[in-house]
Amino acid sequence: MRNYTENIIEAENLVKKFGDFTANDRLNFQVKKGEIFGFLGANGAGKTTAIKILCGLWLPTSGNIKVAGFDVYKQREKIKRNIGYMSQKFSLYEDLTVKENFRFYGGIYRMRSGDIREKTGFFLKKLDLEKSGDTVLSSIPLGWKQKLAFSIAIMHDPKIVFLDEPTGGVDPVTRRQFWDMIYETAHNGITVFVTTHYMDEAEYCDRVSIMVDGKIEALDTPGNLKEKFRVESMNEVFIKLARKK
């Protein structure tokens, strides 16, 4: 177990309301630099809302939130320069080729052309997709697309990468490979903030928070949580928490 000290995300009483509905109810958490932070919860628990606020896509209703040292109310553009984001909905350009997608996103993160080429080559080699560089994305299988989306989200070396249910609809083998990529990314010093509702994936995280109906009900390492609830797996932790309601 590595030790993490520096906070890279700080959320204090984060609240987001849509009319009468409270999607995020006074969330308090810190994410440490370099860790893999699992943000768990059932569908509709409010995970995506929180992640969109942290990425500067939505404004919170209230609360003090800092990402990479920047304020989510006033310094969103600075936050955006320091993060990578992979949304739940696949969002690379289907009508561009693999290389063109790399080039476009590298370009708008103001990477130098040489760096873009180098990174593109690096990721294509790592994903074993060197032959598919000039294939349009629409004819590439979903699992590979997800890995490409993840690669593009980290190609500009962000401080944090946000992954919103990155493994939805993907087969178990690809999921395993995906988590290898996540480990490698964290190992290279990029903080990983990942949401999922696959509880087996929660076991791979350094720390997890579990959201139920807009509130954080538990936040600790998977080991401590299992001990606290006296169960064998994260799955059981989750079911116990959800039943309590």
Partner: peptide
Amino acid sequence: EMGTIEQINVTPI
């Protein structure tokens, strides 16, 4: 409609 705008909005563009 495609959802790509969200990916654009999260960049420093």
